[in-house]
Simulated assay, not measured.
Amino acid sequence: MGRSKPLALARIFTLAASVAAPGLVHAADLLPPPPMPLPPPPVEIGGSWYLRGDVGVGILDLRKTVVEDVSTPRVPYKYTAIEDHVGDQAFVGVGVGYQYNPWLRFDVTGEYRTQAEWRFLAEDRSYDTRGGYNLTTGKFSSVVGLANGYVDLGNWYGITPFVGAGVGFAHHMFGGVTDQGQGTYAGGLGYGRAKDNTNFAWAAHAGLSYAVTPNLKLELAYRYLNMGEAETGVVGCLPSCALKTVYRAKELESHDIKLGMRWMFGAPVVTAAYEPPPPPMPMAPLVRKY
């Protein structure tokens, strides 16, 4: 009788363990699967460099044309300006830049600007006479180089407003200058040789850019461009005379409207496609038979 009690207890414990085992297995099945590893981060190729291209039109203006007599001996030219006009230019440009951070970027640009018509009509008062006029005309084209900085002012649905400024040079190529006498000077004719001159230029920018893709951005912008002065060669009489004159178109200003594009080399490029591993298969419950 004393030996039967321990045997009975052992059988009770064995039966309890067999009943609880399937429950433990099912509880293990309810545990969440282990977290899947993260995909590799995107790889940036080329840093934040970009190429840019621009086309546009510039509406030109000038403060005034200054006329200087360079004869020997010098004869001061006294005149009253009647018409002082400069035409417009179209331009095309290219450049390279660097996106320093999400809101600050820099670039260096160069552009060619087409020929602009220049026209200056004045009454000659050098000899205290009236009714003698000189109509001087010519054309100049320009090459402009600028180093620019821009501040991007946030982003709304892919559109980013920006402002900027630039400094550089403007190289003017003046040619085709003729001087025609009118009024009491009718029949007089003068001619000026071509001349190039280079001077300081500066600009102020404002516009909008739109991200077409992570790599391609389009721009619509306004630019104020101050190109200094353009200078003619020495204008003399034909066939010859002692009078020689130089014309300087001072403070050439251009109000530019331009379309541009920027091709970014630093947009994220994802490495090989990532496929997560399959989840672990659930374990079959342990079943015991008695």
Rank of each mutant, 00 (worst) to 15 (best):
Trp49Cys: 15
Met281His: 12
Ala27Asn: 05
Ala272Ile: 14
Ala116Gln: 03
Asn199Ser: 00
Gly188Val: 01
Tyr222Phe: 05
Pro282Cys: 11
Thr245Ser: 01
Leu51Glu: 12
Pro280Asp: 15
Gly233Pro: 00
Gly190Arg: 05
Gly47Lys: 10
Phe140Val: 00
Ser254Cys: 08
Val163Phe: 14
Pro214Asp: 08
Gly260Asp: 02
Leu243Cys: 10
Leu146Pro: 11
Arg74His: 13
Asp54His: 09
His172Ala: 05
Gly166Phe: 05
Trp263Pro: 03
Pro73Met: 07
Asp179Val: 04
Glu117Gln: 09
Leu153Thr: 12
Val66Asp: 11
Lys217Gln: 11
His205Met: 09
Tyr210Asn: 11
Ser254Thr: 12
Pro102Val: 11
Ala273Gly: 11
Ala170Cys: 09
Asp54Met: 08
Val269Ser: 08
Lys64Ala: 11
Asp124Leu: 10
Met173Cys: 04
Ile45His: 10
Ala10Gly: 06
Asp179Pro: 06
Glu275Phe: 15
Lys217Glu: 15
Ser141Pro: 14
Leu189Gln: 09
Pro277Trp: 00
Gly260Arg: 02
Lys250Trp: 07
Gln180Phe: 00
Ala201Gly: 05
Met261Gly: 10
Gly260Val: 13
Ala8Ile: 14
Ala230Lys: 12
Pro37Arg: 07
Tyr191Arg: 07
Gly260Gln: 09
Pro239Leu: 00
Asp88Val: 00
Gly138Trp: 06
Tyr79Gly: 12
Gly95Ile: 02
Asp84Val: 12
Arg262Pro: 00
Pro239Glu: 00
Val177Asp: 01
Met261Glu: 06
Gly228Glu: 15
Arg113Cys: 02
Val94Asp: 04
Val287Leu: 05
Ser4Phe: 14
Leu208Lys: 14
Pro282Ile: 09
Glu231Phe: 00
Leu189Thr: 14
Ala17Pro: 04
Val19Thr: 10
Ser254His: 03
Gly145Ala: 02
Met264Leu: 04
Gly176Leu: 05
Thr160Leu: 06
Gln99Trp: 08
Arg11Cys: 07
Phe106Ile: 10
Pro278Asn: 03
Glu231Ser: 10
Leu220Ala: 13
Gly95Met: 00
Thr129Ile: 12
Gly168Ala: 07
Asp128Glu: 13
Arg288Trp: 14
Ala201Tyr: 13
Leu146Lys: 03
Trp103Phe: 13
Ile257Gly: 10
Leu220Lys: 07
Phe120Tyr: 06
Tyr247Leu: 11
Glu117Asn: 11
Val43Met: 14
Val163Asn: 04
Asn134Trp: 13
Leu104Lys: 01
Gln89Tyr: 04
Ala147Glu: 08
Val94Gln: 12
Ser4Glu: 12
Arg113Ala: 09
Trp49Leu: 15
Leu30Ile: 15
Asn226Glu: 06
Val66Arg: 07
Pro277Gln: 06
Pro268Gly: 15
Pro285Phe: 15
Ala249Ser: 15
Tyr100Leu: 14
Gly154Val: 10
Glu117Ala: 11
Val92Thr: 08
Gly207Phe: 13
Tyr77Lys: 06
Glu44His: 14
Ser4Lys: 09
Leu259Gly: 02
Gln89Lys: 06
Ser240Pro: 06
Lys289Val: 10
Gly181Pro: 04
Trp49Glu: 15
Ile82Ala: 03
Glu68Ile: 14
Asp29Cys: 05
Pro42Gln: 12
Ile59Phe: 01
Thr160Met: 03
Arg113Glu: 01
Ala203Tyr: 06
His171Ser: 09
Leu189Met: 13
Arg74Phe: 15
